[in-house]
Design a binder for these strands. Structure first.
Lengths: 139, 139
DNA sequence: GTTTATGCAAAAGTTTTGCAAACTA
DNA sequence: TAGTTTGCAAAACTTTTGCATAAAC
């Protein structure tokens, strides 16, 4: 089984991207934290070990990884952009109280055309009240 | 058939909101332009007839109308927040080339619970290439 | 007359940009 | 060495906020 990190960097190498240190650090971070991140949360986390990393580099690399299909951007109510590093089609549940984002596994919609328009990607967002908040726990 | 404007203002009145002039103007604008607006596009459009309107008022009123269920916010790739004044459940198709947003009529999903979390709203976004862009037209 | 909303301008917050210096291949 | 990328700081944008003034009830 091919290592995921190898897969990513071989793809980037193939495309001619420089395999710089900041990029490697960010990729490793994302691969070992399959979650929903913001540029800020990534910057904060990586800054602990590598204080010299800049926000601009975070944004540049996230854009690159999104373009190459390794990340997906999530656009969510009242929030900044989230980056999803979990591969494969899935939807998201967002709790309106605590803001938590949960993955929802779901069969990919096989729609490819709507009224003549070609559909390439489908995003489904469920908004509501999560179990924990309903029970009155703080989180 | 009850006039839509009447419906909105009677609801606002009932809730104790002041039926101010700027609010009436914004509501009338939204009712006669059932589309996908941004705060900026609304401000720009209304400013033509009422140059004294302020952005703060636009935002306040949009927030109010969203809270009262007359508008829905759309969170879309690389863009500011859009406000949808078309009532009833529907999804959206967004062209990645021209940015156009098209309504997609669809049966409302009747999901009310996922893994213990209570779902209150579902948003579906289809991203792709619209017919017009595929044909190579500029729009 | 009291309460609530408006308009202005400044602030806040996220993301982008420009450019010299540093790094990669 | 040639070509990218980085880091910094400033800029660009959208949205929010605070407060005196004005409008609505």
């Amino acid at each position: 089984m091919i290592d995921e990190f190898e897969k990513v960097i071989s793809r980037l190498r193939k495309k001619g991207y420089v395999l710089s240190m900041p990029r490697m650090v960010i990729i490793k971070y994302l691969l070992s934290n399959k979650n929903h991140h913001t540029a800020e949360s990534i910057h904060k986390a990586i800054s602990k070990d590598y204080p010299s990393i800049s926000v601009a580099t975070i944004y540049n690399t996230l854009k690159l990884l999104t373009k190459e299909g390794f990340l997906k951007q999530l656009f969510i109510e009242g929030e900044k952009v989230f980056y999803d590093s979990t591969p494969g089609f899935h939807s998201h549940f967002i709790c309106r109280i605590c803001g938590k984002i949960k993955d929802v596994s779901e069969k990919p919609k096989k729609i490819c055309k709507i009224n003549g328009d070609r559909v390439e990607e489908v995003y489904v967002y469920y908004y509501g009240l999560c179990e924990e908040c309903k029970k009155g726990r703080k989180n």
